Simulated assay, not measured.
Amino acid sequence: MLYLIAEQLGFPGILNLIRYLSFRAGGAVATALLIGLIIGPKFIGWLRVRQGKGQPIRTDGPQTHLAKRGTPTMGGLMILTSVTLSLLLWMDLSNMFVWACLFVTLGFGAIGFLDDYDKVRKASHKGVSGKVRLAGEFVIAGLASWMIISQVGTHLYVPFINYPPLDLGWFYIVFAAFTIVAFGNAVNLTDGLDGLATFPVIIASLAFMLIVYLVGNVKYAEYLGIPHIPGAGDLTILCGAMIGAGLAFLWFNAPPAAVFMGDTGSLALGGALGTIAVASQHEIVLGIIGGLFVVEAMSVIIQVFFYKRTGKRVFKMAPIHHHFEQMGWSEPTVVIRFWIISIVLALAGLSTLKLR
Protein backbone atom coordinates (compact mmCIF):
# COMPACT_ATOMS: atom_id res chain seq x y z
CA MET A 1 0.00 0.00 0.00
CA LEU A 2 2.72 2.50 0.99
CA TYR A 3 4.82 1.45 -2.02
CA LEU A 4 1.89 2.10 -4.38
CA ILE A 5 1.22 5.51 -2.83
CA ALA A 6 4.89 6.50 -2.95
CA GLU A 7 5.18 5.24 -6.54
CA GLN A 8 2.18 7.29 -7.65
CA LEU A 9 3.74 10.38 -6.05
CA GLY A 10 7.10 9.70 -7.72
CA PHE A 11 8.94 8.76 -4.48
CA PRO A 12 9.46 12.37 -3.34
CA GLY A 13 11.74 13.29 -0.42
CA ILE A 14 11.76 10.83 2.44
CA LEU A 15 9.34 8.54 0.57
CA ASN A 16 12.29 7.59 -1.63
CA LEU A 17 13.30 5.20 1.16
CA ILE A 18 10.32 3.02 0.24
CA ARG A 19 12.09 2.13 -3.00
CA TYR A 20 14.54 0.01 -1.01
CA LEU A 21 13.70 -3.57 -0.07
CA SER A 22 15.85 -3.36 3.06
CA PHE A 23 13.82 -0.41 4.37
CA ARG A 24 10.46 -2.05 3.62
CA ALA A 25 11.60 -5.37 5.10
CA GLY A 26 12.65 -3.59 8.29
CA GLY A 27 9.34 -1.75 8.32
CA ALA A 28 7.49 -5.05 7.96
CA VAL A 29 9.36 -6.52 10.95
CA ALA A 30 8.59 -3.51 13.14
CA THR A 31 4.95 -3.26 12.02
CA ALA A 32 4.15 -6.94 12.55
CA LEU A 33 5.91 -6.91 15.93
CA LEU A 34 4.02 -3.83 17.06
CA ILE A 35 0.64 -5.14 15.89
CA GLY A 36 1.23 -8.48 17.61
CA LEU A 37 2.23 -6.91 20.92
CA ILE A 38 -0.75 -4.53 20.85
CA ILE A 39 -3.48 -7.03 20.00
CA GLY A 40 -1.95 -9.92 21.95
CA PRO A 41 -3.38 -9.39 25.47
CA LYS A 42 -6.97 -8.68 24.39
CA PHE A 43 -6.84 -11.39 21.76
CA ILE A 44 -5.67 -14.01 24.25
CA GLY A 45 -8.35 -12.89 26.71
CA TRP A 46 -10.99 -13.26 24.00
CA LEU A 47 -9.76 -16.76 23.13
CA ARG A 48 -9.81 -17.77 26.79
CA VAL A 49 -13.44 -16.68 27.14
CA ARG A 50 -14.54 -18.29 23.88
CA GLN A 51 -12.75 -21.61 24.34
CA GLY A 52 -13.31 -22.31 28.02
CA LYS A 53 -11.19 -25.41 28.59
CA GLY A 54 -8.71 -24.45 25.87
CA GLN A 55 -6.73 -26.90 23.76
CA PRO A 56 -7.22 -30.59 24.61
CA ILE A 57 -4.05 -32.19 26.04
CA ARG A 58 -3.06 -35.74 25.06
CA THR A 59 -3.41 -38.08 28.04
CA ASP A 60 -0.79 -40.46 26.59
CA GLY A 61 1.82 -37.70 26.37
CA PRO A 62 4.32 -36.48 28.98
CA GLN A 63 2.55 -35.99 32.29
CA THR A 64 4.10 -32.55 32.74
CA HIS A 65 1.90 -31.33 29.86
CA LEU A 66 -1.28 -31.91 31.87
CA ALA A 67 -0.53 -28.68 33.74
CA LYS A 68 -1.15 -26.83 30.46
CA ARG A 69 -4.86 -27.65 30.47
CA GLY A 70 -6.97 -24.54 30.00
CA THR A 71 -4.42 -22.72 27.84
CA PRO A 72 -6.22 -21.27 24.79
CA THR A 73 -5.19 -22.28 21.28
CA MET A 74 -5.63 -20.67 17.83
CA GLY A 75 -2.99 -18.07 18.68
CA GLY A 76 -2.02 -18.42 15.04
CA LEU A 77 -4.85 -16.00 14.27
CA MET A 78 -2.80 -13.32 15.99
CA ILE A 79 0.19 -14.21 13.81
CA LEU A 80 -1.86 -14.20 10.61
CA THR A 81 -3.38 -10.82 11.47
CA SER A 82 0.04 -9.27 12.11
CA VAL A 83 1.62 -10.82 9.00
CA THR A 84 -1.24 -9.89 6.66
CA LEU A 85 -1.61 -6.27 7.79
CA SER A 86 2.14 -5.66 7.78
CA LEU A 87 2.56 -7.32 4.39
CA LEU A 88 -0.26 -5.37 2.73
CA LEU A 89 1.18 -2.15 4.13
CA TRP A 90 4.73 -2.63 2.82
CA MET A 91 4.52 -4.98 -0.20
CA ASP A 92 4.46 -4.12 -3.88
CA LEU A 93 0.84 -4.94 -4.66
CA SER A 94 1.73 -5.97 -8.21
CA ASN A 95 4.13 -8.74 -7.14
CA MET A 96 2.80 -12.20 -8.04
CA PHE A 97 5.23 -14.06 -5.75
CA VAL A 98 4.00 -12.30 -2.63
CA TRP A 99 0.35 -12.90 -3.53
CA ALA A 100 1.04 -16.62 -4.10
CA CYS A 101 2.74 -16.90 -0.71
CA LEU A 102 -0.04 -14.95 1.02
CA PHE A 103 -2.62 -17.22 -0.65
CA VAL A 104 -0.93 -20.30 0.84
CA THR A 105 -0.42 -18.65 4.23
CA LEU A 106 -4.08 -17.70 4.62
CA GLY A 107 -5.35 -20.90 2.97
CA PHE A 108 -3.32 -23.18 5.23
CA GLY A 109 -4.25 -20.96 8.16
CA ALA A 110 -7.95 -21.48 7.36
CA ILE A 111 -7.48 -25.27 7.26
CA GLY A 112 -5.61 -25.14 10.56
CA PHE A 113 -8.34 -22.97 12.07
CA LEU A 114 -11.02 -25.53 11.15
CA ASP A 115 -8.88 -28.26 12.70
CA ASP A 116 -8.32 -26.28 15.91
CA TYR A 117 -12.00 -25.36 16.10
CA ASP A 118 -13.01 -29.00 15.72
CA LYS A 119 -10.59 -30.04 18.49
CA VAL A 120 -11.91 -27.42 20.91
CA ARG A 121 -15.56 -28.08 20.05
CA LYS A 122 -15.23 -31.85 20.49
CA ALA A 123 -12.69 -31.59 23.34
CA SER A 124 -10.50 -34.03 21.43
CA HIS A 125 -6.99 -33.81 19.99
CA LYS A 126 -7.99 -35.60 16.75
CA GLY A 127 -9.55 -32.71 14.82
CA VAL A 128 -10.43 -32.79 11.13
CA SER A 129 -9.77 -35.97 9.12
CA GLY A 130 -6.19 -36.15 7.88
CA LYS A 131 -7.32 -37.01 4.33
CA VAL A 132 -9.60 -33.98 4.17
CA ARG A 133 -6.84 -31.73 5.46
CA LEU A 134 -4.27 -33.01 2.99
CA ALA A 135 -6.69 -32.73 0.08
CA GLY A 136 -7.36 -29.08 0.89
CA GLU A 137 -3.67 -28.36 1.37
CA PHE A 138 -2.71 -29.90 -1.98
CA VAL A 139 -5.38 -27.91 -3.81
CA ILE A 140 -4.11 -24.65 -2.31
CA ALA A 141 -0.44 -25.57 -2.82
CA GLY A 142 -1.09 -26.71 -6.38
CA LEU A 143 -2.74 -23.41 -7.33
CA ALA A 144 0.09 -21.42 -5.73
CA SER A 145 2.68 -23.57 -7.52
CA TRP A 146 0.98 -22.91 -10.84
CA MET A 147 1.07 -19.16 -10.12
CA ILE A 148 4.79 -19.34 -9.35
CA ILE A 149 5.67 -21.54 -12.33
CA SER A 150 4.17 -18.95 -14.66
CA GLN A 151 6.93 -16.63 -13.43
CA VAL A 152 9.98 -18.88 -12.86
CA GLY A 153 9.60 -21.98 -15.04
CA THR A 154 10.00 -25.62 -14.04
CA HIS A 155 13.69 -25.96 -13.19
CA LEU A 156 15.05 -27.59 -10.03
CA TYR A 157 18.39 -26.24 -8.78
CA VAL A 158 20.58 -28.64 -6.79
CA PRO A 159 23.07 -27.11 -4.32
CA PHE A 160 26.73 -28.21 -4.32
CA ILE A 161 26.51 -29.09 -8.04
CA ASN A 162 27.66 -26.59 -10.65
CA TYR A 163 25.64 -28.05 -13.50
CA PRO A 164 22.58 -26.89 -15.45
CA PRO A 165 19.35 -27.24 -13.43
CA LEU A 166 17.00 -30.17 -13.91
CA ASP A 167 13.93 -29.36 -15.97
CA LEU A 168 11.08 -31.29 -14.35
CA GLY A 169 8.47 -30.06 -16.80
CA TRP A 170 4.91 -30.05 -15.50
CA PHE A 171 5.92 -32.57 -12.84
CA TYR A 172 7.41 -29.58 -11.09
CA ILE A 173 3.91 -28.55 -9.99
CA VAL A 174 3.58 -31.88 -8.13
CA PHE A 175 7.05 -31.47 -6.61
CA ALA A 176 6.42 -27.86 -5.60
CA ALA A 177 3.01 -28.64 -4.10
CA PHE A 178 4.50 -31.56 -2.18
CA THR A 179 7.26 -29.30 -0.83
CA ILE A 180 4.73 -26.75 0.42
CA VAL A 181 2.39 -29.32 1.99
CA ALA A 182 5.20 -31.36 3.51
CA PHE A 183 6.83 -28.35 5.13
CA GLY A 184 3.52 -27.02 6.40
CA ASN A 185 2.87 -30.30 8.18
CA ALA A 186 6.47 -30.61 9.38
CA VAL A 187 6.20 -27.29 11.23
CA ASN A 188 2.80 -28.39 12.50
CA LEU A 189 4.30 -31.57 14.00
CA THR A 190 7.11 -29.58 15.62
CA ASP A 191 4.68 -27.30 17.43
CA GLY A 192 4.37 -29.39 20.59
CA LEU A 193 6.31 -27.44 23.23
CA ASP A 194 6.23 -23.79 24.28
CA GLY A 195 8.29 -21.83 21.76
CA LEU A 196 9.67 -24.93 20.03
CA ALA A 197 8.33 -24.16 16.54
CA THR A 198 8.19 -20.37 16.74
CA PHE A 199 11.87 -19.56 17.11
CA PRO A 200 13.10 -21.99 14.41
CA VAL A 201 10.50 -20.47 12.06
CA ILE A 202 11.98 -17.04 12.85
CA ILE A 203 15.50 -18.37 12.14
CA ALA A 204 14.39 -19.96 8.85
CA SER A 205 12.64 -16.70 7.88
CA LEU A 206 15.83 -14.75 8.57
CA ALA A 207 17.81 -17.15 6.38
CA PHE A 208 15.32 -16.94 3.53
CA MET A 209 15.13 -13.17 3.87
CA LEU A 210 18.77 -13.14 2.80
CA ILE A 211 18.27 -15.79 0.11
CA VAL A 212 15.35 -14.07 -1.63
CA TYR A 213 17.15 -10.73 -1.50
CA LEU A 214 20.18 -12.26 -3.24
CA VAL A 215 18.04 -14.19 -5.73
CA GLY A 216 16.19 -11.01 -6.66
CA ASN A 217 19.40 -9.06 -7.32
CA VAL A 218 20.99 -9.88 -10.67
CA LYS A 219 24.54 -8.95 -9.61
CA TYR A 220 24.54 -11.02 -6.41
CA ALA A 221 22.84 -13.96 -8.13
CA GLU A 222 25.39 -13.97 -10.94
CA TYR A 223 28.30 -13.74 -8.51
CA LEU A 224 27.01 -16.60 -6.33
CA GLY A 225 25.92 -18.79 -9.23
CA ILE A 226 22.32 -18.98 -8.01
CA PRO A 227 19.19 -18.43 -10.13
CA HIS A 228 18.17 -14.83 -10.65
CA ILE A 229 14.42 -14.37 -10.28
CA PRO A 230 13.19 -10.83 -10.95
CA GLY A 231 10.63 -9.82 -8.34
CA ALA A 232 11.58 -12.51 -5.81
CA GLY A 233 13.31 -9.88 -3.71
CA ASP A 234 9.92 -8.60 -2.55
CA LEU A 235 9.53 -11.79 -0.55
CA THR A 236 11.90 -10.17 1.96
CA ILE A 237 8.80 -8.22 3.04
CA LEU A 238 6.93 -11.43 3.83
CA CYS A 239 9.94 -12.88 5.65
CA GLY A 240 10.18 -9.69 7.69
CA ALA A 241 6.50 -9.79 8.58
CA MET A 242 6.85 -13.42 9.70
CA ILE A 243 9.84 -12.53 11.85
CA GLY A 244 8.05 -9.64 13.54
CA ALA A 245 4.83 -11.60 14.07
CA GLY A 246 6.83 -14.57 15.36
CA LEU A 247 8.69 -12.44 17.89
CA ALA A 248 5.43 -10.91 19.12
CA PHE A 249 3.85 -14.35 19.47
CA LEU A 250 6.93 -15.71 21.26
CA TRP A 251 6.48 -12.92 23.83
CA PHE A 252 3.20 -14.56 24.88
CA ASN A 253 4.19 -18.15 24.06
CA ALA A 254 7.31 -18.15 26.24
CA PRO A 255 7.07 -20.74 29.08
CA PRO A 256 4.62 -20.93 30.69
CA ALA A 257 2.66 -20.20 27.52
CA ALA A 258 -0.33 -17.86 27.74
CA VAL A 259 -1.52 -19.12 24.35
CA PHE A 260 -0.75 -21.92 21.89
CA MET A 261 -0.15 -21.33 18.19
CA GLY A 262 -2.32 -24.27 17.17
CA ASP A 263 -2.58 -25.65 13.66
CA THR A 264 -3.86 -22.22 12.60
CA GLY A 265 -0.37 -20.78 12.95
CA SER A 266 1.94 -23.74 12.43
CA LEU A 267 0.38 -24.89 9.14
CA ALA A 268 0.31 -21.31 7.84
CA LEU A 269 3.92 -20.52 8.73
CA GLY A 270 5.21 -23.84 7.41
CA GLY A 271 3.27 -23.42 4.19
CA ALA A 272 4.61 -19.88 3.81
CA LEU A 273 8.22 -21.05 4.17
CA GLY A 274 7.62 -23.84 1.66
CA THR A 275 6.15 -21.41 -0.85
CA ILE A 276 9.00 -18.93 -0.37
CA ALA A 277 11.46 -21.76 -1.07
CA VAL A 278 9.60 -22.73 -4.25
CA ALA A 279 9.40 -19.11 -5.45
CA SER A 280 13.14 -18.63 -4.87
CA GLN A 281 13.92 -22.08 -6.35
CA HIS A 282 15.72 -23.15 -3.19
CA GLU A 283 13.51 -26.11 -2.27
CA ILE A 284 16.41 -28.43 -1.39
CA VAL A 285 18.11 -25.72 0.66
CA LEU A 286 14.87 -25.43 2.63
CA GLY A 287 15.38 -29.04 3.71
CA ILE A 288 18.73 -28.02 5.21
CA ILE A 289 17.70 -24.72 6.78
CA GLY A 290 14.50 -26.30 8.11
CA GLY A 291 16.22 -29.57 8.92
CA LEU A 292 14.80 -29.55 12.44
CA PHE A 293 11.27 -29.67 11.03
CA VAL A 294 12.29 -32.44 8.62
CA VAL A 295 13.65 -34.56 11.48
CA GLU A 296 10.48 -34.02 13.52
CA ALA A 297 8.31 -35.14 10.60
CA MET A 298 10.54 -38.12 9.78
CA SER A 299 10.41 -39.29 13.40
CA VAL A 300 6.63 -39.58 13.13
CA ILE A 301 6.81 -41.38 9.76
CA ILE A 302 9.42 -43.83 11.07
CA GLN A 303 7.47 -44.45 14.28
CA VAL A 304 4.21 -45.19 12.46
CA PHE A 305 5.90 -47.32 9.77
CA PHE A 306 7.72 -49.61 12.18
CA TYR A 307 4.89 -49.82 14.70
CA LYS A 308 2.38 -50.94 12.07
CA ARG A 309 4.75 -53.65 10.81
CA THR A 310 6.46 -54.84 13.96
CA GLY A 311 4.33 -53.61 16.86
CA LYS A 312 7.47 -52.01 18.30
CA ARG A 313 8.39 -48.34 18.68
CA VAL A 314 11.68 -46.86 17.49
CA PHE A 315 11.23 -43.81 19.75
CA LYS A 316 9.74 -43.66 23.21
CA MET A 317 7.25 -41.20 21.73
CA ALA A 318 6.92 -39.26 18.51
CA PRO A 319 7.46 -36.52 17.39
CA ILE A 320 11.05 -36.75 18.53
CA HIS A 321 10.89 -33.84 20.99
CA HIS A 322 8.58 -35.99 23.13
CA HIS A 323 11.16 -38.80 22.93
CA PHE A 324 13.71 -36.60 24.68
CA GLU A 325 11.13 -35.54 27.26
CA GLN A 326 10.47 -39.21 28.04
CA MET A 327 14.23 -39.65 28.44
CA GLY A 328 14.15 -37.12 31.26
CA TRP A 329 14.99 -33.85 29.52
CA SER A 330 12.98 -30.91 30.85
CA GLU A 331 10.84 -28.96 28.39
CA PRO A 332 13.08 -25.83 28.44
CA THR A 333 16.12 -28.05 27.83
CA VAL A 334 14.54 -29.64 24.75
CA VAL A 335 13.37 -26.29 23.40
CA ILE A 336 16.67 -24.43 23.81
CA ARG A 337 18.77 -27.29 22.44
CA PHE A 338 16.48 -27.58 19.42
CA TRP A 339 16.78 -23.81 18.94
CA ILE A 340 20.56 -24.17 18.82
CA ILE A 341 20.23 -26.94 16.24
CA SER A 342 17.97 -24.75 14.10
CA ILE A 343 20.57 -21.95 14.12
CA VAL A 344 23.36 -24.35 13.08
CA LEU A 345 21.23 -25.80 10.28
CA ALA A 346 20.32 -22.32 9.01
CA LEU A 347 24.01 -21.42 8.81
CA ALA A 348 24.68 -24.70 7.00
CA GLY A 349 21.93 -23.94 4.52
CA LEU A 350 23.25 -20.44 3.85
CA SER A 351 26.72 -21.87 3.19
CA THR A 352 25.32 -23.61 0.10
CA LEU A 353 24.93 -20.22 -1.58
CA LYS A 354 28.62 -20.20 -2.47
CA LEU A 355 29.33 -23.95 -2.53
CA ARG A 356 28.26 -24.50 -6.12
Results as ranks from 00 to 15, higher is better:
G231C: 01
N188H: 04
R313C: 00
H125W: 05
D115L: 14
F108A: 12
G26Y: 10
V285R: 02
G184H: 14
Q151V: 14
T236Q: 10
W251F: 14
G225H: 14
V278W: 08
A318N: 06
G265K: 11
G107N: 09
G26K: 12
L214T: 12
F305K: 15
I237F: 02
L102I: 13
K316R: 10
I79A: 04
F293Q: 11
N188G: 03
S342F: 04
I289M: 00
T71E: 07
R69K: 15
L250W: 14
L89V: 13
F97L: 00
A197H: 01
T64F: 02
G265H: 08
V215H: 01
Q51E: 05
F208S: 02
L168P: 14
F208I: 05
L87C: 05
P56F: 05
K219Y: 12
A144C: 02
N95L: 08
G290T: 04
S150W: 08
Q303I: 08
L345C: 07
L238Y: 07
G291D: 12
M91N: 11
H228K: 07
A232E: 00
A207V: 11
I284L: 09
G52V: 04
F208T: 04
P200F: 00
L206F: 11
I302S: 00
H323P: 00
E283V: 13
I229K: 00
Q63A: 15
F97T: 03
D92C: 00
G54F: 03
K316G: 08
E331P: 00
L189D: 09
T352A: 05
F113K: 11
D118K: 10
T352L: 09
A100E: 15
I202G: 07
K68T: 05
H228F: 05
K316I: 11
W170E: 11
T275W: 02
Y172C: 03
W99T: 15
I226M: 02
A135S: 15
G45S: 11
W99Q: 15
T310L: 14
V104N: 05
I44Y: 02
A279W: 06
G75K: 14
M147G: 05
W90D: 03
V29P: 01
I276F: 03
K53G: 02
A110S: 06
G61Y: 08
I79W: 07
T198V: 09
D234Q: 14
S342M: 06
Y20V: 09
D92P: 02
T333K: 08
G192D: 05
L350S: 09
M96T: 11
I203F: 03
K42I: 07
E137T: 14
M298P: 01
P56Y: 05
A6D: 05
A258G: 09
I320G: 03
G233Y: 00
I341D: 03
I39P: 01
I140V: 13
A32W: 06
R313H: 01
G311T: 10
N162K: 15
M147I: 13
F252Y: 14
P165A: 11
L269I: 09
I340L: 13
V174F: 15
L102H: 12
A141G: 02
V215C: 03
K122V: 01
M91T: 15
V120R: 04
E7C: 06
M261C: 06
A277T: 08
V120C: 03
T73C: 00
M1E: 12
V304E: 10
G240H: 07
G225K: 14
I140E: 09
F305H: 15
Q8T: 07
